[in-house]
Structure formats: C-alpha cells, structure tokens
C-alpha cells in the first residue's frame, strides 16, 4: 500500500488519509459581488492536470490535520507535502 508522509505524524498508509481536492483555491475577496456564473466557477470548477497537482489532504485517522501535497496524477507519486501555512511548494 502506498505510504503518504503526514507533515506531523510521518509516513502512514494511504487509507488513513482523506482527499480534499485542489489546494490554493482562494476564497473570493467580495463574494457578494460575484455573478452566479463566477460563484459556480469558484465552487465547482477545479483544475484537472495530467502531472503535478497541488492538493489538500487530511490525516483523518491520525492527527486529523489538513495539509497540502504535490502529487503527480500520472504516477500517483507524492513529490512533497507541506503545511497549510507554508507557501505553495515549487517542484522542478
């Protein structure tokens, strides 16, 4: 089974984790001013890249903390994990 590195608990089996979708989706500055279409884009529209993707994960069985990860959607390989308050990781 694939191991995922929790920034706090260390490497754990993937079944301990919960997927949280794309990371770094910023909440609109003025949500009241958004049109329905813009709101729908914020709520429902996500990137779907082939390759490296910044995602949110939660170590739901362990420390129950959310963190971010860069994962390759082709190989399923986790390139790095970083905490929510860290800037978006840049991978080569």
């Amino acid at each position: 089974m694939q191991l995922i590195q929790c920034p706090w608990c260390g490497p754990r089996e993937e079944v301990e984790f919960h997927y949280g979708g794309q990371a770094h989706v910023a909440y609109p500055d003025n949500p009241a001013e958004l049109s329905d279409q813009e709101w729908a884009h914020f709520v429902f529209f996500r990137d779907n890249p082939k390759g490296r993707f910044a995602e949110r994960w939660c170590h739901s069985v362990g420390c129950r903390r959310w963190f971010n990860a860069i994962r390759d959607t082709v190989t399923y390989r986790f390139e790095c994990v970083y905490r929510l308050d860290d800037p978006k990781a840049v991978t080569s």
């Binding site: 608990c9 754990r12 301990e16 069985v61 362990g62 420390c63």
Partner: peptide
C-alpha cells in the same frame, strides 16, 4: 504513541 487503525477501528 500513535493514532492509527487496528483492524477497522481507529
């Protein structure tokens, strides 16, 4: 200490 699953129980 560790928080994990034993069988299917957390």
């Amino acid at each position: 200490s560790v928080q994990t699953t034993l069988g299917l129980a957390g």
